[in-house]
Design a protein around this nucleic acid. Structure first.
Length: 695
DNA sequence: GTTAGGG
DNA sequence: CCCTAAC
């Protein structure tokens, strides 16, 4: 017998705010295809947009200062080389810890054309930045750069588990840096009159043209200086473990089942765990933030309004992939509540990484644009290095941005050795797209403080040439959240997303650096921490952190609720952004493979209730798993029965324990003979007894 | 709103 | 998972 309570707890983490679905007739309306475009690299767009916006705002204040010769220009970064050492170190230490080798994946350069971006940007919510992790951040300082190139690089570390699975850890920050290629392109100072009112023009930077970098716009002195600012917050952590500790998470993506090259009959598992920040204490203000205006925004920026240009085939592939992955989960207008729940995943974790240090380390020397232009350099310190150049001249509002690279939150991937390379790729890709696909918001950090008031002018915010623009930073914050991963005692327990979410940014005065956790080692603190969590049988509560906070239920670590020591297999977890964000144009729901734990719960419920009472089954075992409808349960049962009846070799997806399958068969046959409605009381278990062995 | 079953 | 039909 499984108590309802237990079941409830078990699936608490799944509680995905389900958005009331519009009538199918309505939902079906409209081309689904459109949605696909929707979330295309919001991150980039946002970054670009922010940069543009910033520039725009900076220009006004800049001009005056420039006139006085007080303009301070930040240095450009030569991300490629100067940062490398540090990155390498970080990477290696991490790799070592994980006993793995690194690999990397590149995402082709992504370029964005501004125009419409700005409008989107304006629609972006920002006040809530505080509670969000600085997924990616950029520091800006004056300079006269126009283009930014960014590409994504993921470092992957592998390790083999005792169970034979290969664990791939995609190092978010630590591993990505080497790929940072900072290229700056100075552009002719030609500004058409008719464009003077334009804030900026973020256009695709052609790599080939992105050559004359720093040298052209900044002097060496500045360059050298910039070195100090090339530190990524994440790298500040002496030990890679610290990062782990903070970002570990467990997200399961159901890719394997769809992989034609799948793993056959083996007990393969594919897991992607975005690393999440460790829970932190004292961030109750999240609550307040959660209710901030941000939550009132109506829908995410429409990506279709943005034009993205891919400069390489790779990028296209990337998009294609994303398309497949996200086409169905395009975010759409979602009820406020839903939106809340899905808007702060990695945010916190990175936010903490944006330490004041990193900010203060920004280049101090400034260089005045040769024409007295205000230029900004977006530092990569926090993951995204972007160099933007602004022209105070009203005439030339064009700013071309090309984000060359940015960090992706650390991910944890585990795939069986038998998995194909292709499946691994897809897994990684899914992990990446999961992070990026939901869209990213931009935050502005100035002097260690988040600048939330969008209406304030830069001057009002104190952002001017006079005020060390080095302390100006941008953050890219994921706009989605993941739902709780369940804890698997045997394996590395992962901190739930809740933890991450609870890891709120410290007060302005307090830098992003999480205190006390930066020097932890991988094996001790991190694992210890995780184990603690696991041993305490903690699991994310049904509510997402935000939800919990809003409810006043559980701030901080209390967001965790005790969970019985059940054989809690990792529950299928899908990024929140993939969850409820569907609406009229609704896509197909995100595929969310049932976890073993869920299957078990289902089996138990069916054993008790029979196969004709799905609604009851739902209420009994999945009441809090909002993403599982009774129809889903019914369908799952259907497939379970089928699965149980076929050869193990033919089964796909996460293997279901034979025991369970046997129970499925038993229950199925039992209830086939007994009308479930009539025997609601007796459990099939009683009649069926223990399952027999199977293949 | 549920169930059942095909797709 | 989606969609429909049927209750």
């Amino acid at each position: 017998m499984v108590s309802k309570k237990r079941l409830d707890c078990r699936f608490n983490g799944y509680r995905a705010p389900i958005v009331p679905r519009a009538p199918r007739s309505i939902r079906r309306r409209g081309p689904r295809k459109k949605l696909v475009e929707d979330s295309k690299l919001c991150a980039f767009e946002l970054l670009a947009a922010v940069a543009g916006k910033l520039l725009e705002e900076s220009e006004s204040s800049a001009s005056s200062n420039i006139a006085e010769g007080k303009v301070k220009v930040g240095a450009c970064l030569d991300g490629d080389e100067k940062v490398q050492p540090k990155d390498d170190t970080a990477l290696k230490s991490e790799s070592l810890d994980r006993g793995s080798s690194a690999e990397s994946a590149f995402v082709p350069e992504i370029c964005v054309q501004e125009h419409k971006l700005l409008s989107n940007f304006k629609a972006l919510p920002q006040a809530e930045n505080d509670y969000v992790v600085d997924h990616i951040s950029v520091h800006a300082s004056p300079d006269r750069v126009k283009k930014i190139d960014c590409d994504i690089k993921l470092g992957i570390c592998e390790e083999k588990n005792s169970d034979g699975n290969t664990t791939c850890k995609i190092g978010g920050s630590a591993c990505f840096d080497d790929s940072f290629n900072h290229k700056v392109e100075s552009e002719p100072e030609v500004q058409p009159e008719d464009e003077k009112n334009q804030i900026g023009d973020l256009s695709m930077a052609n790599r080939s043209t992105v050559k004359d970098s720093i040298g052209e716009c900044v002097n060496n002195d500045v360059l050298n200086n910039s070195e100090s600012s090339v530190q990524l917050p994440l790298y500040r952590e002496p030990v890679a473990g610290a990062f782990f500790q903070k970002h570990w998470n467990d997200v399961k993506l159901g890719i394997r089942d769809d992989d034609e090259n799948s793993f056959g009959c083996n007990k393969s598992r594919t897991r992607i765990r975005p690393f999440r920040p460790q829970p932190r204490i004292g961030h109750r203000r999240i609550r307040k933030l959660m209710t901030s205006k941000y939550w009132n925004w109506k829908g995410a920026p429409k990506l279709k309004d943005c034009e993205l240009y891919n400069t390489s085939e790779g990028m296209k592939s990337f998009y294609r992939y994303r398309k497949n992955v996200y086409a169905r989960e395009r975010s759409q207008r979602v009820p406020l509540k839903k939106r809340k729940l899905s808007d702060h995943s990695f945010a916190v974790s990175y936010d903490q990484d944006v330490s004041s240090d990193s900010i203060s380390n920004l280049p101090e020397k400034g260089v005045m644009g040769d024409k007295g232009n205000l230029a900004m350099v977006l530092h990569r310190d926090n993951g995204v290095s972007a160099t933007v150049r602004g022209h105070p001249k009203p005439k030339d509002p064009h700013v071309k941005l090309s984000i060359k690279s940015f960090k992706v939150p650390e991910l944890y991937i585990e795939v069986p050795e038998t998995a194909t390379v292709g499946s691994l790729k897809r897994t990684v890709m899914e992990a990446v797209t999961t992070i990026l696909g939901a869209g990213i918001r931009v935050g502005v950090v100035f002097q260690g403080k988040k600048v939330r008031d969008d209406s304030r002018t830069l001057q009002q915010a104190g952002i001017s040439q006079c005020s060390n623009l080095d302390n100006l930073g941008f953050t890219l914050e994921p706009s989605f959240t993941r739902v709780s991963p369940s804890l698997t005692p045997k394996k590395l327990p992962a901190l739930s997303s809740c933890d991450a979410d609870r890891t709120l940014p410290r007060s302005p005065a307090t830098p992003m650096m999480a205190s006390g956790i930066s020097n932890t080692s991988v094996d001790t603190p991190v694992l210890a921490k995780l184990d603690d969590v696991g041993q305490n049988k903690y699991i994310c509560s049904t509510k997402t952190p935000s939800d919990a906070l809003l409810d006043g239920a559980v701030p901080d670590s209390k967001a965790l609720v005790p969970v019985p020591p059940v054989n809690v297999e990792e529950l299928a977890v899908v990024p929140a952004n993939l969850k409820p964000k569907r609406s009229e144009l609704s896509q197909r729901r995100t595929r969310r493979p049932f976890s073993v734990a869920e299957v078990e719960a289902l089996v138990e419920a069916v054993e008790k209730l029979g196969t004709g009472r799905w609604r009851d089954v739902k209420m009994l075992a999945f009441e809090n798993a909002d993403h599982r409808t009774y129809v889903d349960l019914k369908d799952k049962w259907k497939t379970l029965v089928h699965t149980a009846s076929i050869a193990p070799q033919q089964r796909r997806g996460e293997p279901v324990p034979h025991v369970l399958l046997n129970r499925v068969l038993s229950a199925h046959s039992y209830w086939s003979q007994h009308q479930s409605k009539q025997h609601g009381k007796h459990t099939a278990e009683v009649v069926l007894g223990e399952p027999h062995s199977d293949c």
